[in-house]
């Protein structure tokens, strides 16, 4: 029983990391209807930016904040530079275009930082003993960030004028435009904000695992699974399915370790067979 509790706790911290990254993806999709393949690259960029900034400033909080903001700016530049020309094109072209961006970013990172995985020294936050096992305190930082993000998003979307505009654009873009909302401003904002979140997720993983070239690939697949499962563009759905995926993965690692790699796909397949539009439906 205690072991299960511990696994759920571990699952929660992975789930919160998935949530931070995948909500960025689903947010971008909700506003712009573009599924951004390069989201995983932004995640990777976040880790590498934070790494470089940490070496320079030696402050972890500062490097996370600045690093993820910088990723947000990169996302904004990508949107204004290339992605905005594809809004009216078929989905295939958008996917392929962002896939091209993945290739470019991958090689740029390889060129600048090399292909050897890099780490920062541990933060030294220590561990607590829960249910007889050692649990890193840093995981609570990630959980806290995830919950904080949930509150911030809730406030942003439901209480501010910007949130009203975003919700209007998500539900009916033509009507929103007729009411004087400039969609391009929102598109730019959503790419900035979504990429910022991807970068934040990447930077947050830095004390736990090294920044490496392939790291974006795994997370983009998980983000895709989570967003498709929760309903594309649905923020609540992203939260719930991050929890489902994160916790079931961690429980599976405890009970059936050999099935861990398959469990999220199995859940996705089950959800799609029962409810093709996702748990909460498409936004």
């Amino acid at each position: 029983m205690e072991a299960i509790f511990f696994q759920i706790l571990v699952g929660l911290s992975t789930a919160m990391l998935y949530w931070v990254v995948s909500v960025g993806l689903t947010f971008i999709f909700g506003v712009t209807r573009v599924l951004n393949f390069a989201h995983g690259s932004f995640y990777m960029l976040g880790a590498f930016f934070a790494l470089a900034l940490f070496k320079w400033t030696n402050s972890f909080v500062l490097s996370i904040a600045l690093g993820s903001l910088a990723v947000g700016v990169v996302g904004l530049l990508c949107e204004r530079g290339v992605i905005r020309f594809t809004y009216s094109l078929p989905v295939a072209f958008q996917l392929v275009l962002t896939f091209g961006l993945v290739l470019i970013f991958e090689d740029l990172v390889r060129f600048i930082w090399g292909s050897v995985p890099q780490m920062i020294r541990p933060l030294g936050l220590g561990v607590v003993t829960i249910a007889g096992r050692r649990f890193p305190i840093y995981s609570f930082v990630i959980m806290g960030t995830g919950l904080f993000l949930w509150i911030i998003l809730y406030f942003l979307l439901l209480e501010t004028k910007l949130g009203l505009m975003i919700r209007a654009t998500i539900s009916d873009i033509e009507l929103a435009m007729a009411n004087g909302i400039n969609p391009h401003l929102l598109y730019a904002f959503s790419f900035f904000f979504g990429s910022f979140l991807a970068g934040l997720g990447g930077a947050l993983t830095l004390p736990m695992c090294s920044a490496s070239l392939g790291m974006g690939e795994r997370i983009i697949i998980y983000s895709f699974i989570i967003t498709v499962m929760g309903g594309l563009g649905n923020i609540k759905g992203a939260f719930m399915s991050s929890l489902i995926i994160g916790i079931s993965e961690s429980l599976c690692a405890f009970f059936m370790p050999s099935l861990t790699i398959a469990i999220s796909y199995v859940i996705l397949a089950l959800v799609l067979v029962v409810k093709p539009e996702g748990i909460y439906g498409e936004a």
Binding site: F99, L103, D107, L108
Partner: peptide
């Protein structure tokens, strides 16, 4: 770094 050229061509 041939991927970067491939990416640029795709874009």
């Amino acid at each position: 770094y041939w991927q970067i050229w491939l990416g640029i061509v795709v874009v």
